[in-house]
Nucleic acid binder design. Structure first.
Lengths: 244, 244
DNA sequence: TTATTATTGTAACATTGTGTTACAATAATA
DNA sequence: TATTATTGTAACACAATGTTACAATAATAA
């Protein structure tokens, strides 16, 4: 939300500056401890859990809005973002959870309030470095936190479906685009990278073939040996080569 | 548009039943005479050429709206449709061409008319059997016709960009999904199919490799020999195997 | 110091998929 | 019946990937 406009509160409930009927939902993926994570928001009072999302300012580019929304929740800039689907079924917009939230937060409204109308939502997924994210709740959300993708609770509206579709898109994009690096820290071993791929694709990969393929892409720079302290050969650290 | 609601004219200029700020633009691909074709509409009076498009009824699913819009223009049902991108830049919505069209058609409006506001547009591409399409203009469009993809005129707003993005999506989808058959007639030879692929991808393919690949997919049924009348071996006809 | 252990880096071979060349099988015409 | 152009497909070459094998470590233990 635009902090320069005091007429707007953080969740934009007055909505004078936003396009109506259209929203953005963001599936923000992180990777930590051998698990894919998703950043989710919990509305205070009602406890409803939902994807981070937001609206588009009337003079704002759609992709800029997505960037803004994801930056606000993560504290990061230059985030890898990908549009993956538009969720536009009429039935997806049950006004009940939002009405409960408005009531619980003493926000005046009637049944024609724009937040209770139908929304079509543009789905974006983001890939971020888990270790760099500082999740940011606000006044309406009492929590903004990582959830293991394997144990997502029942979410608001069709947000569970949106996550599944985002994951499917991530899986197909993984082969075509070189995006997995956005989920890693600056430096990583080929073993780390393989575990990431195996986690996203949910299947085991053969180590020699995986290493050969990654190295043959020509986008990895060998940095130094990693000190592990373990009783075996130390792996090399790599970084994503930025000059490509 | 819904013919059952007399309060709506065909182009929905009153817009009481439509979502505002959101539109659908459809890139309808056909294939004929060794060329990829796109179906385009020409507004009467102004001569502005644009993609077929439309709006979403307030209680209509987004994908249903896209189907409806494409069916209206082609006269076909069960059309292969794919969402490929959402065009949401603020600058894309120049109100001038639409204002000219409203003026030329004596449609009363002021500068706040919803058709002159900003639109975010969901891009769909459709693949149809060229020979089955009966292009349908209406009162606002004096023409609805096929254009060779290689010689598209300057279109309204960012519609040239939308076509380019649709073509790029079609090209990448061609390898992953088995969708080219939607552009062919019921029965076709492998030579026909190869010409289609070559036209879409804009590059020559080697015949033995192409035939081997298509046949190994296991989705083609050999039907009969095709009578060509030419002084050489007759090719086989194939059809897309529906039981898969 | 040297053997032990587990893991990494990579060679080597097998299999599969695709690029390329070659040629037999036609279907009409001369 | 020979000629012609095109189709169907075999055969080989090459590239990408799957799989097995093993040498190169880095710490620990003997």
């Amino acid at each position: 939300m635009n902090k320069n406009e005091p007429s707007e509160n953080e969740t934009g409930t007055t909505g004078t500056d936003f396009m109506h009927g259209l929203a953005i939902d963001a599936v923000i993926f992180g990777f930590h401890d051998h698990q894919l994570k998703v950043l989710l928001m919990r509305y205070n009072k009602t406890g409803v859990v939902a994807l981070p999302g937001g609206f588009i300012h009337k003079t704002e580019n759609l992709n800029d809005a997505a960037n803004r929304i994801v930056s606000e929740r993560t504290g990061l800039k230059n985030i890898y973002l990908e549009q993956f689907y538009v969720f536009g079924d009429y039935g997806r917009s049950d006004p009940r959870p939002m009405k409960d939230i408005l009531i619980a937060n003493n926000i005046t409204h009637d049944d024609n309030h724009w937040l209770l109308q139908r929304f079509i939502s543009v789905g974006y997924y983001a890939l971020v470095d888990f270790t760099k994210v500082v999740p940011k709740p606000d006044t309406i959300f009492d929590s903004c936190a990582w959830y293991d993708l394997a144990i997502i609770p029942k979410l608001m509206q069709d947000h569970n479906t949106i996550i599944l579709k985002a994951l499917a898109s991530l899986r197909t994009d993984l082969d075509n685009k070189l995006i997995a690096f956005n989920l890693m820290q600056e430096e990583f071993t080929l073993g780390d990278l393989q575990i990431l791929y195996e986690t996203i694709l949910d299947k085991k990969l053969l180590r020699p073939a995986f290493q050969r393929k990654m190295l043959s892409l020509g986008i990895l720079e060998r940095v130094a040996k990693k000190w592990t302290g373990a009783a075996h050969k130390a792996p090399y650290l790599y970084r994503f080569s930025k000059n490509i």
